[in-house]
Design a protein around this nucleic acid. Structure first.
Lengths: 344, 344
DNA sequence: TTGTAGGCGTTATCAG
DNA sequence: CTGATAACGCCTACAA
């Protein structure tokens, strides 16, 4: 049996194709009687509207784009997996599909936007890895392209909550602050921060959280603030300098750094028993070696990103409540005992 | 300026839209002179063919589907990241896009195939996680849907190299065999295998590799073959039993198992200095703790999957060489010194 | 409430 | 080698 279309259905039912279309897109305009008749015919025939036909007419593809960032560390890849999965699931529930694309740079990404918008009629984009002076958000805003970002707009002057574009983020600073406070409660008075070079929004945010907790407890921070590129080796190196500066515990901007730091601290301060290093992202690596870590509610973030995007795309006519345009989620601290490599 | 279409271009050039279409899809049919004229006009106007229009006419979307498997361990999520990225990049180079979807089960996945085929005109699918008696491949074959699988068809009777469908896989058995041989060369005579319960294709394959190496060296395997569910804790438990059976080294079916095993062995056999545990997949976790591991050339696999799929879809008219329909890639052994948590 | 007409952008077919 | 014509399946506007 050939695939059913509006026309074939209309013929077999003795109504016009327009009526079928109305049953699908504007049921209230059709007399209940015929509506039911048509609906059951639709079900029986297994009719599914063609995306191509619809897209040609409406210039909407029900497709959302997201860029695959280049694989770097790999440790955070597992986070991406969770993020993508939640994104896809939420989009699917709202009738949207996710289209993946690659780009070498932000400029290239913008080029891809143009291309995908032109040829594939993508309805919107999900952005990740926002940073200071992000060209992409500016371009998308200028061109009235719907999008939502995972990551607030980083700017030293503008308040993110007045931003013109939708975003969802996790309050990294709150996470490191909480982590630092825990260490303070455990009696540590010299707690180092091991983060990325100043200049990255998320990194500076996490550093600020540590600093807040230290100041609040009136603890000195001099010499305890290390800037390092991400990675295990850099983490070990940084921890060494922190120990020299007197640190007995370390809060890190990533699990990679934390892993290196934990190894180094275990070596330099073997007498310590409590978890003295706290990572960020709660990756499987952290779980695997029993490292405490700040966990991001990444599935929630993904779901909200889709919610705000699809709500906007449907023009608010989707029935649901209007999702907040700017949302800062709280992370949680996953505490673990470092059984690691010595006492599983 | 409005977006250029075939019609607008044709008008401004004084030719028929069909000629423009021919320049794009069948250049050889157009007189070189007009072809050049049209081509430069295309470039100038920034014309890009509409996917919707094309799709409506050709019933092809230039879109490939891939299912997001449920997130389980997380450790292997990082592998997925690399895989997806390579897939997307290769597809993009061939003019295809990747569409993500979710499914709860294989049956559900088949339902999604139908849906995506019907509404979105997907041109083909990439399958992962093939297993014994996989319904999905059967369905796709029955319905003449193009696809390529990452993972050979597992069947006790059929030779995978005669399979009706395209696949790419990594020779896991060769990997564990190589790993086992290395340990034998290092002087170990009692080497355990820590793998998944018998019944999974990939798991049994890896087990067989270990067994081959042991038999080849005329070493006993009695009591050295452990079946455990994946995970760090199970790995530690399994290693304990292996040590009781006299094992001094362990080859594992995954990095999760290996991580647990390494911890346990370090505890039970502290005098050993050499890397006595070898994992599988070479995940960031392995890299982080200095665990040797069998590395899969996953980017190569992804590229070949796309190559074989797009070559088939283009009906072999894409100019390139015909890619092999069945391809078994060799893994490599990444050797590391277990600095782990004690000596970064 | 239902039907009719037109067109979205493309390619296939066939005639010139 | 080029052009006219006819779909592909759908939705919007308007007419009945």
């Amino acid at each position: 049996m050939a695939k059913a279309t509006l026309v074939s259905l209309a013929e077999s039912l003795g109504v016009s194709r327009q009526t079928i279309s109305n049953v699908i897109n504007a049921p209230h305009r059709v007399k209940p009687e015929t509506r039911l008749r048509v609906q059951s015919a639709i079900e029986q025939s297994g009719y599914r509207p063609s995306a191509a036909g619809r897209q040609l007419r409406t210039r909407r593809s029900m497709n959302l784009g997201i860029r695959m960032m280049p694989v770097v560390d790999g440790i955070n890849g597992s986070i991406l997996d969770r993020f993508l999965h939640a994104l896809t699931e939420a989009a699917q529930q709202d009738g949207y599909r996710l289209t993946l694309f690659c780009a070498d740079s932000d400029a290239d990404e913008i080029g891809q936007y143009e291309e995908l918008l032109n040829v594939a009629d993508l309805d919107g984009f999900v952005l990740t890895g926002t940073h200071y002076g992000d060209d992409r958000t500016a371009w998308l805003l200028d061109n009235d392209v719907p999008f939502a970002a995972f990551g607030r707009p980083w700017s030293s002057i503008e308040d993110p909550f007045t931003s013109r574009h939708a975003w969802v983020d996790v309050d990294g600073g709150a996470g490191t602050e909480q982590a630092t406070r825990l260490l303070i409660e455990q009696g540590h008075t010299s707690i180092g921060f091991l983060g990325w070079p100043v200049g990255s929004g998320a990194g500076d945010d996490r550093r600020a959280g540590w600093r807040r907790a230290m100041h609040h407890a009136r603890l000195a921070t001099k010499g305890l603030d290390i800037q390092a590129d991400d990675g295990v080796a850099a983490g070990a190196l940084g921890a060494e300098r922190l120990v020299e500066a007197g640190a007995t515990a370390v809060v890190c901007a990533s699990d990679s750094l934390a892993l290196g730091a934990a190894a180094k601290l275990r070596q330099l301060l073997p007498e310590q028993k409590t978890p003295v290093v706290i990572g960020f992202d709660d990756t499987p690596v952290a779980a695997a070696v029993g490292l405490s870590s700040v966990a991001q509610p990444i599935e929630d973030a993904a779901r909200h990103i889709i919610a705000v995007l699809t709500h906007h795309l449907s023009g608010g006519r989707d029935g649901g409540d209007k999702p907040r345009k700017h949302l800062l989620l709280e992370p949680t601290l996953t505490q673990r005992t470092p059984y690691s490599f010595s006492s599983i």
